[in-house]
Every structure is written in structure tokens, then in C-alpha cells.
Design a protein around this nucleic acid. Structure first.
Length: 450
RNA sequence: GGCCCUAUCGUCUAGUGGUUAGGACAGCAGCUUUUCAAGCUGUUAACUCGGGUUCGAUUCCCGAUAGGGUCACCA
């Protein structure tokens, strides 16, 4: 039994697409599970649209996801092999050169190489879907190359698959209709047939093939939004495949252990951003505190600067736990800051006097409560501010006896100037003693002035 | 339109010739809570339709319908 050999055959005509990443993951899992070899084949047969930077992006994003490959080839560099194969077909009269008017350049005549289609019925076994049969007559004498030395996609694919000894072709179902013509080329060339497995496509919200029109499809975009590679990898592998264990959260190693082609689904699946966000939050919650803090600080620093607020390293660091509780993806943090949700951590808020008192509580009582809070917080030594729980312990008994809302609402509102925010203990901890006391005092003065 | 593929909650899915058709995300409710977020608990919601086969079909077969893919001198 020959060993397994699979391929990642992206065409470098655009940034790495999530569909490309999914193709790579599925092939990777199958290869690793079976101790196989992976060929990364850059299919740059379209000279006009292929760009080196796209090839770079695809490699970069796949590596970012944690994938790897064993061998690399570039279709354009194998043209000699393709030409020889095509020439052989022409010599055998299995293919012929046809002089035609150029479809691209009006007026020009070109020599297209076409296969003499035997027009037979082709049946192939698909590992996921069973037997699939086509009548290839309708394919006519399809084109193999724009010239003997300028192969078209299907021809190059077949020759490269055979030359590289590919045993399993695992690709999206959009290639099912391409399979019979590739088989015709294979047979003309006398190659053996690989095992085929066509998995379902990733769909947009409208259930059509995921495309740029539906929003972000570039892996790079997800990376820039702050999705973690494990989360994206886990998600794209799990939509369209269910491991026997039924687990939803799996590491790449666990996926390899569980992978079987037969567990791939048959029907297309809608790409669900909410589910992806859920995966991301799961992984974000598990990254080490130090790393999370460093990541949050970097984003905060830039976003806070863009709002022209003074930077405070200590505040930023203390803010990390609050941030972790509120975001699913790093981009959420940028959004939060740009919406002004976190301004009060870096500069004193401007509360409205009328909103300071809790509902149904008089201004006089509120001033009294705030005076006591201020005194209590002012009298606390700095160590108390190291831990929100200690601040809470400091004021909670009073709040409990006087009515939590009556005391805690004005305290929190004084500190944040917002109807909605994290709790006052966390806020006081983060902004520190000086700012806390100052803000409470501001609120008291504001209340007295009306 | 021809050909091909597919069909279970809104979404991703599990599953079986006899089940209270299970889970996850989202939603909703409650708890907790000064607010928000988080967390915890509970909960709404599905077998596309019509014929067969069968004692019995969500499950097997056929058809319809719907959705998708593909029909290049793109990949």
C-alpha cells in the first residue's frame, strides 16, 4: 500500500480565503492521521491574476493557523513537464491544435490545444458521496492549453497530481463537475486515478458560496480583527466535520487523532460569525494573564491615543481583567474604546447632577452617602486599592444597611459618569485612590450646586 | 436552461425501521447584581412535501419541490 500523499493547491490570485484555509486544514488532518506527505502547490497557471504576494499571504496565513507542509512546487516552474505531456497527446492525436479567433484579443488568431473527447460515461467513487456518474459528451473537445507550452488549470492539475504521486484529492464540492474532465485527461495520459473526496462548501448568510460580497473572507482580515488562530482553525474544521467524540473544542492534535474522511458532511454549511466569536472567546479566556494583559495594553495604547486621552500605564494594566470579561475578540476592545465606553478610566468623567442620586433618593441623602464613601475611601491605605474585593469589603456593610442602590449607584455614577459600567469597586481599584476621591468630591459639589 | 450534489430547530449538527428526536451557538426567562458585562439555571424551536416498502417510517426506495455547484482561451 503506497503511503498517503495529499496536496494544498491554492491559486495565488487573491489573499488567503477562509475556504482555502479550510481546504488546507482538512487535507492536513487526513495526511497527518495517515502519516502522509503534504505538497503545497502554488497553481499559478493564470499568469495575469497570479501574484507572488498572494502566494506569500497564503503561506503566511496557513502557517499562522499552525499548518505546515512537506514539499513545495509552483506550477509555472513545471511547464516543461506539462508541455511534454501535451505534446505526447498531440503526437498520439488524442489532442489537437485548433486555430481559433482569440476570445481575449479580437482579431488575433490563437492555437488552442484541445482534447479529442471520447465522449464516454465516467463514473468515479467519492469517499464522501459514493458513486458519481457523468456523461462527458457535453464537455465537447475542451481546452488543455492556450498553447503547447501554456497549460490550462485542468491539464496542469492532472499532470502535477500524477507527477507528485498524489493519492488523495480532497477538495470542495465545487470541483465535482471538474472531476470527469480531469479523469478524461488522466486516462488519455495513462495515469492512475487518485481517491477523490469532495467536501461541502462554506456558505454565506444567503447560502451561496462564501465570497467577498458577503463580507470578510480573507484569513488576514480575521487575524487583523484579533481572532486567535486556534479559534479560527477549530471553527473552520468543525463546520463540515464532526469528530466521533462529538467534541466541539479540539486542538489540532486532537483533530488529527479523530479525523476520518467518512465523517465529513455532505451538505453546505453557513459560516456563522457568532459561533466563531464564541470559539474565540473560549480561547481568549484561556490565554495566560501576562499575555492577555500585554495584548490588551497594546490595543488600549493606540485606541486611547486616538481619542486624545492621557495614557496611564498603571490604569491600563489594572484594566485587563475587566476587558477580558467583556470581549470575544480583540476588535471588540477597539470598538468599546472608540464608542467612548472606557474614557472614564483615563480622564475624569462629567456626570450630570440630575443623575447622581439613585431613583427615589433625595439629594441630601445622596450627598450624605457620598461624603461617607469619600471619607472611607480616602481613609483607606493604598494596599486596599490593590484588590477590588477589599474596597468592596470597606464600603459594602454601609451600603447594605443604607440601601445598596442608594449608596452604590451614586458612587458608581460619580466614578464613571455613565449609566452602564463595571462595578464601582473595580473602577476604584483601577483608577486608584486619588482619582476616586477626587471624582466623588466633584459629584458632591455638583449636587450641592443645584 | 443541461448536468451534478444536497435536504433534522434561526445557524452548526447528533441520531434511529418503534426515541419524550439529543447537543452547541444565537434567542428568551429566572437567579445573582446599584447598572452593564460575565456567570449559573431553566426554556422556546426541527425531521421540506407526495407516493410507495413495512405492523410501523425522520430513517429505506421513487418522484416533486427547494437550495447549492458547474457548464472559459479562470482557477
Amino acid at each position: 500500500m503506497s503511503s498517503v500523499r495529499v496536496r494544498f493547491p491554492p491559486s495565488p490570485t487573491g489573499l488567503c480565503h477562509v475556504g482555502t484555509a479550510r481546504m488546507a486544514v482538512l487535507n492536513y488532518l487526513f495526511a497527518k492521521k495517515n502519516g502522509g506527505t503534504i505538497f503545497f502547490r502554488s497553481e499559478d497557471t493564470d499568469k495575469e491574476r497570479s501574484k507572488p504576494e498572494y502566494e506569500e499571504d497564503i503561506k503566511e496565513q496557513l502557517m499562522w493557523l499552525g499548518l505546515s507542509w512537506d514539499e513545495f512546487s509552483r506550477t509555472s516552474e513545471l511547464v516543461a513537464v506539462h508541455s511534454a505531456a501535451m505534446q505526447k497527446l498531440v503526437d498520439e492525436d488524442t489532442a489537437y491544435i485548433s486555430k481559433e479567433k482569440s476570445a481575449k484579443e479580437p482579431g488575433k488568431t490563437v492555437e488552442i490545444v484541445r482534447l479529442r473527447n471520447p465522449g464516454k460515461i465516467v463514473t468515479f467513487a467519492d469517499e464522501i458521496r459514493g458513486e458519481i456518474t457523468f456523461d462527458t459528451t457535453e464537455l465537447k473537445d475542451f481546452a488543455l492549453g492556450r498553447a503547447i507550452d501554456d497549460p490550462l488549470f485542468h491539464f496542469a492539475v492532472v499532470v502535477d497530481d500524477a507527477t507528485q504521486g498524489i493519492t488523495h484529492v480532497i477538495r470542495g464540492e465545487d470541483h465535482i463537475s471538474n472531476t470527469p474532465r480531469q479523469i478524461l485527461i488522466q486516462e488519455a495520459l495513462g495515469y492512475s486515478r487518485p481517491v477523490y473526496a469532495h467536501y461541502p462548501l462554506l456558505l454565506g448568510a444567503d447560502r451561496s458560496k462564501l465570497s467577498k460580497r458577503m463580507g470578510d473572507v480573507a484569513v488576514r482580515s480575521y487575524r487583523e480583527m484579533g481572532f486567535l488562530p486556534q479559534a479560527l482553525l477549530n471553527y473552520i474544521a468543525n463546520v463540515g466535520w464532526t469528530p466521533p467524540s462529538g467534541k466541539e473544542i479540539l486542538s489540532l492534535e486532537e483533530m488529527v487523532q479523530e479525523f476520518e474522511l467518512k465523517d465529513l458532511h455532505k451538505s453546505g454549511a453557513v459560516f456563522d460569525m457568532e459561533k466563531l466569536r464564541w470559539y474565540n472567546r473560549h480561547y481568549l479566556l484561556r490565554i495566560p494573564e501576562q499575555d492577555f494583559s500585554a495584548g490588551a495594553t497594546a490595543i488600549l495604547k493606540e485606541a486611547i491615543a486616538s481619542r486624545n486621552l492621557p495614557w496611564d500605564e498603571r490604569v491600563a494594566h489594572a484594566l485587563a481583567p475587566v476587558i477580558r470579561e467583556r470581549i470575544s475578540v480583540w476588535q471588540d476592545l477597539r470598538d468599546l474604546i472608540h464608542e467612548g465606553e472606557f474614557d472614564f478610566f483615563f480622564s475624569d468623567p462629567t456626570p450630570e447632577a440630575a443623575r447622581i442620586a439613585h431613583k427615589g433618593i433625595s439629594s441630601a441623602d445622596t450627598i450624605r452617602h457620598l461624603e461617607i464613601m469619600k471619607k472611607s475611601l480616602d481613609g483607606s491605605d493604598d494596599a486596599v486599592y490593590d484588590d477590588p474585593e477589599r474596597i468592596k469589603a470597606r464600603v459594602f456593610e454601609y451600603a447594605g444597611s443604607e440601601g445598596r442602590g442608594a449608596v452604590l449607584w451614586p458612587l458608581r455614577y460619580s466614578l464613571t459618569g455613565r449609566e452602564k459600567s463595571p462595578d464601582p469597586f473595580s473602577v476604584a481599584h483601577i483608577i486608584g485612590k486619588g482619582a476616586s476621591v477626587r471624582r466623588i468630591d466633584n459629584a458632591i459639589q455638583l449636587l450641592k450646586s443645584i
